[in-house]
Design a binder for these strands. Structure first.
Lengths: 204, 204
DNA sequence: AGCGCTATTGCGGACATCCACAATAGCGAA
DNA sequence: TTCGCTATTGTGGATGTCCGCAATAGCGCT
C-alpha cells in the first residue's frame, strides 16, 4: 500500500510531467492519467489524496470528470487547472465543491501550497468520515424497535413515556435502552447524544 | 420598517439603474450606492437581504468592500459583478464566502434567479442565527460554576462523579443542574444536549 | 450594616434508571 | 423441526435523579 498520492489528469504529457517532477521534488508521490476516462476506469483509487484536473481535455472535460468522480463516491479534493480565462466555469466548479481553480501558467510554489492544503483537508475529512462510518455501522446494527426507542430517548422522553407511546411495558423499554447503549458503545444516554450530535441526522 | 432589500453597489449609474429597474419589475426592493465607501458608511443596514457588488470601482474595489462588510458583521450574501474575465479574483471571492460571481453583460433572468436564491439562503441563515443568539444568550446567563457543571453533564458524567471532580456535594450539583435546565429552557439533560448539538461548540 | 446574588450542604421522599434472574412468543434459516 | 434472533414482560433490589424545605457563607453594592 503506497502513501497518499496526487493524481494528475491532463491530456498534455508536457504538463503532466512538469507537475509530476515538481511534486516529486517536494517529496510528493504522483500518478499521471492521460484523460478523464482513464482515471474514471481506475476507480476506486485507494491512495487518492488529491486530484489535479485540467479543464479542457480530449474526451470528457474537467468538470464532467469531476461530476463523475463525485457520483462514484470519490471525495478527494479536486484542483482545477485551466489555460483559459473562463470565469463561469471557475464559479461553477467552486460552487460544486472543487478545492481550487488555478490558471496556467501556474506558479510552482503556489500550486505546491494548494496541493498541500488540499491533502491536509483530505486527511481531516478522512478522519471525520471514519468516525461517521463507525457511527453509521453501529446505527445499522440496531433493530427497528431499538431505533424507534432511541429516537424517543434522544428527544428527552422518560422510559415511562416511551413505554406509553409505544404501548409496551417500561421493563421492555429498559431492555432496549440497555441494548442500544451497548451496541452504540456508550455508557449513558448523554454520551449517546454527544456522539450523535456531530451527525447531520441519519436517524430522522 | 421596509422589507428585505437588495443593495446595489456600483460606480456606474447606468448599471445601477438598470439593475434597480430590473429588480423592481420583479417586485424586489432595491437601494443604490455609488461606491463602497457609501454603503460602508451606512452600516449597519437593517433590511439588507442581499448585496450586489461591482468588482472594479472608483475608490475601494469590490473585494475590499466585501472584506469590510464581513469585518463589520454584515453577513448578507454578496453577489459580485465583473466586466473583466478575472479568474483569480473570482476564485478568491468565492473561497472567501461570496454567494456568486457573475460576468457582465449579465442575463436578466439569470441575475434575478441568483438574487432570489441569495435572499432565500439569507432568510434561512437569519432564522438559524436567531436560534444561535438565543442559545448564546442563555449560555451567557449561566454562572461560571454552572457552566462547569454543564460541561461535565454533557460528557455523560453522573452527578456523583461531577461532585467528586469538583470536590463538592452531590446535592450542590443537583441544584446547579436544576438551575442550568431552567435557564436553558429545557426539561431534561437530553433536551439540553439536543439543543446544543446544533452548536459548533460555544462551550469548549 | 443591610441587601441581593452565587455557592454551598443536609434531609427525606417521590420517582427513574440499571440490572441479574427468569420466562414466553413469533419468525426466518438451517 | 430445531436453532437463533428479536421482542416482550415480571420481580426485586441497588443506585441515581429531582425537588421542596431549611440553612450557612462569601462578595459586591448601597
Amino acid at each position: 500500500m503506497s502513501g497518499p498520492t496526487v493524481h494528475i489528469v491532463d491530456d498534455d504529457a508536457g504538463i503532466r510531467d512538469a507537475l509530476s517532477w515538481l511534486l516529486a521534488s517536494r517529496g510528493l508521490a504522483a500518478v499521471e492519467w492521460p484523460s478523464g476516462e482513464a482515471i474514471l476506469a481506475a476507480l476506486p483509487l485507494e491512495d487518492c489524496a488529491c486530484i489535479i484536473l485540467d479543464v479542457r481535455m480530449m474526451g470528457s472535460s474537467g468538470p464532467e470528470v469531476f461530476d463523475q468522480l463525485r457520483a462514484r463516491g470519490c471525495l478527494a479534493p479536486v484542483i482545477f487547472l485551466t489555460g483559459h480565462a473562463d470565469v463561469p466555469v471557475a464559479v461553477h466548479a467552486l460552487k460544486a465543491g472543487a478545492f481550487d481553480f488555478i490558471e496556467k501558467p501556474f506558479n510552482d510554489n503556489q500550486i505546491v501550497d494548494v496541493v498541500l492544503a488540499a491533502m491536509a483537508t483530505h486527511a481531516a475529512r478522512q478522519a471525520d468520515a471514519a468516525q461517521r462510518r463507525d457511527l453509521s455501522d453501529r446505527l445499522a446494527a440496531l433493530s427497528p424497535r431499538e431505533t424507534e426507542v432511541m429516537r424517543l430517548m434522544l428527544t428527552g422522553s422518560l422510559n415511562k413515556q416511551i413505554a406509553d407511546t409505544l404501548g409496551i411495558a417500561v421493563r421492555t423499554v429498559e431492555v432496549h435502552r440497555s441494548r442500544i447503549l451497548t451496541k452504540m458503545g456508550v455508557r449513558t444516554a448523554m454520551e449517546l447524544a454527544h456522539a450523535l450530535s456531530a451527525s447531520p441526522d441519519p436517524v430522522g
